[in-house]
Design a protein around this nucleic acid. Structure first.
Lengths: 219, 219
DNA sequence: CTCGTTTTGTTCTCGCGTTCACAAACTCCT
DNA sequence: AGGAGTTTGTGAACGCGAGAACAAAACGAG
């Protein structure tokens, strides 16, 4: 999925671990807001919903930020993980496709609080260009190149219907976006060096349905 | 994640395969709508964005539905996968939390077209009980037990703020729901026998940010 | 009927990720 | 100061999934 060209950095964190770091970050934030200053790997693992051995191994890829016999300083570890993920800096993001899902994404407070700033909402439909969503006004899709260039946007979100997804992705890649979060129910092709992550709401439900069906059968 | 009690069924499909079956299903639907009657594993793998060897191995867990030297009958295979997942039957679903995301989910046409029927929208806020979203009127959260009982609902969707998620999950489990799709940014605990899948929008962005940061560093 | 071609279904090998188990290191109490 | 009790960090074993490679089966041509 993530083909790095060559010369791996010294810190080579497994993909499975990378996917869990944001979970730990959230758990640490919750602990910190609850007034907890220090926690053991067992505490944090419980809060994050994982095994404590796995948690310790994951953290060991970042370095030795704990103290044996004591545990982890919540705020210190939180900062270290945030720095490793890259959410201590500000990431400008464009969202294309302002339907129901695009609205929800634009209004989602979890983005801003984690270093992501929605700098533009784009839609091909001129009907929508009057709207203002979450304090950002919707602009024509053709403004993509200018916005991405002006604000150095590296991350794009696709929330369009399936038929438009590949076209939007092509345009994004052409103007320099190198990370795409795709909510459209379609497989999109991108060149090497561009990361794509896909979130598909109905696929998750279908996976649940499969297990549900098996529960019913074995009863 | 999915702890089955005992006496595994003869068909024991790996979790990784189960997660890809809906992707194949969607690809087959696209092919069928495009007029394709037959396809090779190579064709379908391309459409689904996976390796053809992996595709054939996945399908082999379901049975032998292809013809050597020819390929797969698109509609026949599509039906077999749909039956295996369980989306040939009708799954009633309740959605709790009608904020921006809840709206988007209620309006998402991909649910209905895949056998999922939203039978109720619930929200604790009385302000919202007047609304009608996607043809379904929003009702008080306390109606949960009655609706789930009357309509034999097995699947629940949580689209509330993080603080409410555990409480909603507890109530769902108490009245018989055994599969939960959780969009709230919180880890929820459920008893054995209940499946939970979690979708977290900001976590996906954070994973992209990590890779983006590394691209920038190595440049 | 036989042979060559195509494509599936399956076996085998390899690598990654998870988990166990324990040594190293730190704190606290006496 | 020394020993008991905790908790981290990591080496090693294990299991699952990915991909390559091939045998089995169907089809078509001659």
């Amino acid at each position: 999925m993530t083909a790095r060209t060559s010369s791996e950095n010294a810190r080579d964190i497994p993909e499975a671990t990378v996917a869990r770091l944001p979970v730990y970050l959230r758990a640490l934030t919750t602990l910190s807001e609850g007034g907890t200053r220090t926690c053991s790997s067992e505490d944090l693992a419980t809060a994050a919903g994982v095994n404590s051995a796995k948690l310790r191994k994951d953290l060991s890829y970042l370095g030795s930020y704990g103290t044996r016999g004591v545990g982890y300083d919540v705020d210190y570890l939180r900062y270290q993980i945030a720095r490793e993920i890259g959410v201590t800096q500000d990431w400008p993001v464009v969202i294309v496709g302002i339907g129901n899902l695009g609205h929800a994404l634009a209004n989602y407070s979890g983005f801003r609080s984690r270093g992501f700033r929605v700098v533009a909402l784009l839609d091909a439909d001129p009907e929508r260009h009057d709207e203002v969503v979450a304090g950002v006004d919707v602009r024509p899709f053709d403004d993509l190149e200018q916005i991405v260039g002006d604000q150095s946007v590296a991350i794009g979100v696709i929330a369009t219907p399936a038929v438009a997804a590949q076209h939007v992705a092509d345009r994004m890649v052409a103007c320099g976006i190198t990370s795409i979060l795709n909510f459209a129910p379609a497989v999109i092709a991108v060149p090497d060096g561009v990361d794509v992550r896909k979130v598909d709401l109905s696929i998750e439900l279908q996976i649940l349905a499969y297990h549900e069906q098996r529960k019913a059968q074995s009863a």
